[in-house]
């Protein structure tokens, strides 16, 4: 569904994307995880036609993004990181303009707006101006807008950034529902728990390169299941163990106390790159 071969993006001397190869099959929820500046948003901007690639190839559902740009754009919906709704228009007007941009017929537009606003639980706000909505509602409107033309692929660039935990969980449920309805999802995030909860596969991105790519369970499994953190004069130290018992036995010797916890994707990222995701 999404195929990327040797993708490179340069900004002058800076190599934002440095030779990425990737294949996301239909129906998969794929997460791109990395710190700020790793190249997550740049990849999405290239795939959705907002930024030109420097070299390499990319295709969406078989349509080359450079040679068949308009056909490739029809395959995908985009929820960008920044809220880019028209705040002076109503919710339904925002969706209607999007439908027109994708050449939808009036009857189809009206039906889809009703369907999607029910889907994201905002039907009663269809006539509200966007500026009157909360941040979480705006995010849901953006998801609805991206789904207006029934895209095969949905790009979500940091979809829950800045939202409180309750709203974030609600957006996660919505994303899962969209995937269950057959849409391929490409998600960027720097929230570890988001990638763990949602993704079928995760790619770790660092300095424009993919340093590891697998399912969250397999990425974590290499380290063990349990971790302890303790503080020393050199800073925070972490050790990994196959079992809780082994971790506790090792931890009892720590003088300044310790934290016992499950191993997560952040640990896997840290062990591969030597840095934290956030």
């Amino acid at each position: 569904m999404i195929r990327i071969d040797q993708l490179i993006k340069r900004y002058g001397a800076l190599m934002a994307i440095n030779g990425i190869d990737l294949h996301v099959p239909a129906g998969e929820l794929f997460a791109y995880l990395g710190p700020n500046g790793a190249g997550k948003t740049t990849t999405i901007r290239i795939l959705t036609g907002l930024t030109k690639l420097s070299s390499g190839r990319a295709a969406l559902n078989g349509h080359d993004i450079e040679k068949e740009t308009l056909a490739a754009k029809r395959q995908c919906g985009l929820v960008p990181q920044n809220i880019n709704l028209d705040s002076e228009l109503t919710v339904s007007e925002n969706l209607d303009i999007h439908g027109r941009l994708f050449c939808m017929k009036p009857v189809a537009r009206k039906a889809k707006i009703n369907e999607l606003l029910t889907y994201v639980d905002l039907h009663e706000r269809s006539k509200s101006l966007v500026k009157q909505l909360s941040g979480g509602m705006k995010r849901r409107v953006m998801v609805a807008r991206a789904l207006m033309h029934s895209p095969r692929i949905l790009f979500l660039d940091e979809p829950t950034v800045g939202l409180d935990p309750n709203i974030r969980r609600r957006i996660w449920s919505l994303i899962k529902k969209i995937q269950q309805d057959g849409t391929t999802i490409f998600l960027t995030t720097h929230y570890i728990e988001e990638a763990e909860f949602l993704a079928d596969r995760v790619a770790f991105l660092d300095k424009g390169r993919i340093v590891a790519m697998d399912s969250p369970i397999k990425l974590i499994a290499g380290l063990g299941n349990w971790a302890i953190d303790w503080l020393t004069d050199d800073g925070m130290q972490t050790a990994y163990f196959p079992s809780r018992t082994a971790a506790r036995e090792s931890a009892t010797a720590k003088e300044n106390g310790f934290t016992l916890r499950r191993v997560n994707l952040e640990d896997a990222f840290l062990s591969l790159t030597g840095k934290k995701v956030q």
Binding site: L50, T69, K73, L78, P80, N84, D86, L101, F102
Partner: peptide, 14 residues
Amino acid sequence: YWCIFEEFQAAPIS
């Protein structure tokens, strides 16, 4: 400011 231009850029219009 609003980044709305991106909505047009990402749409299949010339």
